[in-house]
Computed example of a mutant assay.
Amino acid sequence: MKPLVSIVISNYEYGHYLPALFNSLASQTLGLMQVEVIVADDGSSDGSADTARTLGAALGFSRFKVIALKHRGKPGPVRNAGLSIARGRYLLCLDPDDAIEPGFLSRTVAALDNCPEASLAYTDYFEATGDGGRVVSLPDFDAKLLQTQNPLTLATLMRREVFERSRGFSDQTAYEDWDFWVQAAENGFKGIRVPLPLFRYNHHGSNFSWKARLVDGRAKAQIVLDNKYFFDPEVVGWARALVRSEAWAVPFRRGLIPRGADVLALREMASRVLDRESTRRKAANA
């Protein structure tokens, strides 16, 4: 019998986080005989694969598998490798430093079962930091939001056709989650929010998503260029100019893709600056 839910955990050198994640899986109110877990390991040297095998063997999953991959250094292809062999009706990706509350699977599965027009189910989350943390309440699903920001976390349950109709998680942008949800929205898939903090995101300096902020501008531009029909033509022009390092194409605020109107305003401002500089030079040479 095929599992109801397949969980893909992409890992690289994060074996010390796996016990807490597996504890959160063990606490799920959805029976684990309905759950398949695939750990896709990106060539770790810290014993992650052995740790995962020991932890997985102790729980009653319908299927448990560890796949050892050649190191790629990016989470997208690692997730894709796990998702490509997943058998579940619903798919979920997690990172080893994530955790889900006991009702996460049962609540998100119920949300999709009860809402056939939705293909993505996500929850609010708790962002844990070294000195405490905070509850983050996410907005209700609106595909247009993805044109400017990413309101979804990686821990979003999806119908398997969302992955089957996608290009998978990209290895061309450091914001591979955002790119994936853009693909889903472009394909017409809709989401539903479960308004409870059932996902725990552990915020620390070695998060891949945190490091992605160092290349924020180009990461956002690549999302636009790889999904150009989803974005305003002015925004596509901005992305091309930013990749070409044109002086006017600034990256805007971190984690935000500009709207078409923002790009137009930026172009007009740059044009005025150039006009003033040209006038100044002509006056100096007169």
Rank of each mutant, 00 (worst) to 15 (best):
L196W: 03
H16L: 03
T148I: 14
L83F: 15
Y229P: 00
Q172E: 05
S245I: 09
F199R: 07
V135A: 02
P139T: 11
C115A: 14
A270S: 13
H16R: 03
K220I: 10
C93G: 05
V224E: 07
Y17Q: 02
K74F: 05
A284N: 12
G133W: 13
R276C: 04
S62I: 12
A239S: 11
R167S: 13
G76P: 02
M33W: 13
V5T: 04
M33Q: 14
S10T: 09
G132W: 11
L256D: 15
L196N: 02
G188I: 08
D98G: 00
D97M: 01
P233I: 15
H203M: 06
L69P: 00
S119H: 07
D97E: 12
P116Y: 09
E117H: 15
A270Q: 07
D46S: 11
Y201R: 04
L196G: 03
F230W: 02
E13I: 01
T54A: 15
H204K: 00
K144Q: 09
K70E: 14
S170Q: 02
R72E: 10
E164A: 12
A241R: 04
A40F: 08
D142Q: 04
T51C: 12
N187G: 14
A221C: 05
L21V: 01
R281M: 10
R267C: 10
R218D: 14
V236L: 11
K2N: 15
Q147M: 10
Y17E: 07
I67Y: 05
D95V: 03
R159S: 09
R79D: 03
V135S: 14
P77F: 10
F163G: 03
A86L: 04
G43L: 12
F252V: 04
P258T: 12
R200E: 08
E127Q: 09
G130N: 05
F208S: 03
L138C: 10
R63M: 13
G82K: 04
V235S: 05
S24N: 02
G60W: 09
G130K: 13
V39F: 03
Y90R: 01
L225T: 11
I7Y: 03
V235H: 02
Q172S: 12
R165W: 12
A261V: 10
Y122G: 08
L146M: 04
M33I: 08
S106Q: 11
G217H: 09
G260N: 13
F169M: 01
I67T: 05
R89H: 10
V243K: 02
R159T: 13
A99I: 01
E101K: 07
S119M: 00
T51L: 09
H204P: 00
T156M: 06
R72C: 04
L21R: 02
L105I: 09
L18M: 05
Y90F: 12
V194K: 06
V5G: 02
V136Q: 11
P251G: 12
L91F: 05
L92H: 06
W178M: 04
F61R: 04
F163V: 07
L4M: 09
F230V: 11
